[in-house]
Design a protein around this nucleic acid. Structure first.
Lengths: 309, 309
DNA sequence: TCGGAGCATCAGTTCAAATGACGCTTCTTT
DNA sequence: AAAGAAGCGTCATTTGAACTGATGCTCCGA
């Protein structure tokens, strides 16, 4: 049985052209290399190297053996990589970032699923809007992020992200239950052109989507208030300060004093993605979570369509 | 770096279903197997086997590793097979160089013989005059070369060649059939001192042999033409441009419009050798071919003496 | 409850492999 | 021609890995 450590030595000798250089590269002494090669030659019954004064050269048998050695050693490395990948799901940790509304809806389900499958992976999560999430991934604080953008507004997300589309999330208009338009059958954005608007400030990324949609509808909204997050925005709408648009994911739960109404084809839509840094290594845990998010998003969509029907 | 012996143990355990059975199959004791597997698990950072009361079962990581182990071990066996094949002349290749006339006569016979005995050795051949052949051996392009020199001219061949004498090849004078001297019983070199001479240029090594022979005969030949190779030289002689000397090996075939005449003791002789680099390794294929060339040369000599008689 | 099958652990021994010192050869430089 | 450098081989020594044999532990079935 050929000894792989000896093959490694032989390969190094072949690559470096001398026993001494190979020994240095392998952090061995020269006699160690000499003995390893000698043993290989003894065991294989062939002379593998021609010794010259200036170093060594492969014989035919040596060249053949080095070719095999390359293949064998490469395969061993493959095996190590795969083991490391599998081990990656039996330990380690996965740090997630999500914008707020997904963090309260989509993500918990995915986390539960992941935790069931890979209980030994430590999970962590922070709430962060898309731009902040990108920063934190670049800083190495976060492995995978849920982000969104709008088809109509190019450049909202950085180019260096590797994105997986999860679902499209249409905005609905949110009104006080007793709003004059709450009972109208079909609502259009332009119906609210004179209303004061509330924008959920912490969802900084939403504001350009609002503005773009209103501009497309032919008016510029009058922003009355900025709220910190969607629950606050709902509360503000409930007090009658103004109306707002919220994506469906943010309507769960909806303040009982409010109603939400779809906007039809005119509705702005945000696209929701799982994102990780395109460059560099993707850990198996990250990949597994990406897949689980896809599945969860599919379930989510199916349910909400059932609910709508 | 994964240890292949441990992989072998793991594979055996997976195949047999228990440490004890694997130990028996490998002629180890059970603790040895246990320790090897434990080491593999420690080093890889994964649990590879689920231990039950009845034996063991592979985990996901273990199954992946066994798959790799199979491939790795198979490749190692391939390497062993190929080494054995090369050592046993059941594979590998042999690259030959020969000067032109031997390449058309002696070498083909030897190649046929070699091929019959060792059909799995790939053979290659280039035509090269002695000096070029030496270069190519030093460059590693060629394993064994047919070369020649003259006893009378020291230093024609490099010192670092390991030479095996095959045969002596006397030059004969080649004349047009209707040459006035063609019917003379005994010919001497000096008879042609006034003739224009044709030298076969590609056989650069022949020219000093010509010159030396003529000098010994007391004249300096007048070289009318240089021909690229011996067939061209024959053709030139046939047109009446001049006469030439050719070694017997180059007289096969002889242009039907020509005759060749021996020159007796005065004839220059080239010594033909099988040559390989003296320093360094001699592959079994090279050694086998050297031996076959010796035998073939002997046969050749016997035949030509029979023909002469 | 007991016995057997099977894995883990421990101490001891054996053997392979690396080291460091030294010698030999070849080639280069002065 | 002599000295020096580069490089491989050999030897004695040491170190560490791995196998062995004894023993303990666990789980299962009768």
């Amino acid at each position: 049985m050929l000894d792989v450590r000896r093959l490694k030595v032989l390969r190094e000798v072949a690559r470096r052209g001398s026993f001494s250089a190979a020994a240095q590269a392998l952090s061995f002494t020269q006699p160690a290399v000499s003995q390893q090669v000698a043993a290989l030659e003894r065991e294989s019954g062939s002379t593998l190297l021609e010794r010259n004064a200036r170093g060594v050269r492969l014989t035919e048998a040596g060249a053949a053996l080095v070719t095999h050695a390359d293949a064998i050693l490469a395969r061993i490395e493959d095996a190590e990589d795969e083991l490391a990948a599998i081990a990656g799901l039996r330990g380690g940790r996965l740090r997630l970032a999500s914008f707020q509304s997904a963090g309260a809806t989509l993500l918990p389900r995915a986390v539960a699923e992941f935790n069931g499958r890979h209980p030994d992976v430590e999970l962590g999560m922070v709430v962060a809007e898309p731009s902040e999430a990108s920063e934190r991934m670049r800083a190495g604080d976060v492995d995978l992020a849920l982000v969104y953008d709008s088809e109509r507004i190019p450049g909202m997300l950085d180019d260096d992200l590797d994105l997986t589309h999860l679902l499209d999330d249409p905005y609905e208009v949110v009104l006080p239950e007793n709003h004059p338009l709450a009972s109208r059958r079909r609502l259009r954005l332009a119906d609210f052109s004179d209303e004061p608007w509330i924008v959920s400030g912490s969802q900084a990324g939403c504001r350009p989507i609002y503005e773009r949609a209103c501009a497309d509808a032919g008016f510029e909204p009058r922003f009355a208030f900025e709220a910190d997050e969607t629950m606050a925005a709902q509360a503000l709408v409930a007090t009658g300060v103004g109306i707002t648009l919220l994506p469906r994911l943010a309507l769960n739960p909806l303040n009982p004093a409010l109603v939400s109404r779809p906007l039809g084809r005119e509705a702005p839509v945000r696209r929701i993605w799982a994102a990780h840094l395109g460059e560099g290594f993707v850990s198996p845990a990250t990949e597994a979570m990406r897949q689980i998010l896809c599945d969860t998003a599919g379930d989510f969509l199916a349910e909400s369509q059932l609910a709508a029907a």
